[in-house]
Design a protein around this nucleic acid. Sequence first.
DNA 1: TCTATTTAGTTAACATGTTAACTGTATTTC
DNA 2: GAAATACAGTTAACATGTTAACTAAATAGA
Lengths: 146, 146
Amino acid sequence: MPTPDKKTLPSTARSLPIALIRARENVMAPIRHMLAESGITEQQWRVLRVLSELGPMDASSLAEKSALLLPSLTRIAQAMKARGLITQRVNPEDRRRQTVAITDAGQQIIDTHTEQALIIGQSYRERLGDENFDTLIALLQQLEGK
Amino acid sequence: MPTPDKKTLPSTARSLPIALIRARENVMAPIRHMLAESGITEQQWRVLRVLSELGPMDASSLAEKSALLLPSLTRIAQAMKARGLITQRVNPEDRRRQTVAITDAGQQIIDTHTEQALIIGQSYRERLGDENFDTLIALLQQLEGK
DNA sequence: TCTATTTAGTTAACATGTTAACTGTATTTC
DNA sequence: GAAATACAGTTAACATGTTAACTAAATAGA
């Protein structure tokens, strides 16, 4: 005889965390596959995209815009600097800060993959339809607040 | 003078991958915080939840249901077995397979956190509203197809 | 049945995620 | 203006993510 008063957790199949994980996996897979030929990771791609779009910025801002934690960015930036994809220079106004910028080699990686990245991005938009796609983005952003 | 024919990537601020990452981060944070006191990770929590809900199963099914890659599950299961949260036994029908089951100690971790997990889950549902919440889950699942 | 192939799971190697401790620099406060 | 505090970034330690190579067991085919 069950205990009707005892609350139970919702089925894992309908769990929001798991749905988010699966969606992320599925969206990222073709991007990772595309980038493999250039030997860069999806995280490095995000860093390049942010720097290319918004210009040089300090490491904390870059981490925030790239959706990376600062310790991860530290390692990623070291690797990218070693490969000549970005530069780092100390900010003379505040020597705790460093300014990170994309190099020509880094921009070239962006240029090389822009066309295919657009196609991949479009495929997801088309799968859901324009309206649903925008709804999805809006709902995801609502999860971010506070 | 800009080159109007050249396509450019969409703004990273509106990028689906980044929105998914941020949403996942935000949804997971309170769950991780809750689990920290028991010393288990969100991945271990998912494994326990799946085993508790669906019963013993082989490792591949468990990985799929828990949204983990098999190599990750191998490591996680080793740690959980060492802590006495799960058991593993070879399937005599097919000795390549192993059956994983939750232990009483594992179930106790579920029971300890069920109430608060429900509250956390509800908070996200309330933030979006029932209808939007269900829409979000449905749209995320649409990203998984094929 | 004997080999080739497939399948379940593990191991390895490297990158990132996550939290905490730590370093150096800038700010605040008394 | 010296000590306490806050801030930007790094390092450390451990767990997971990701791909590829590998092992052992099952199955398919000739």
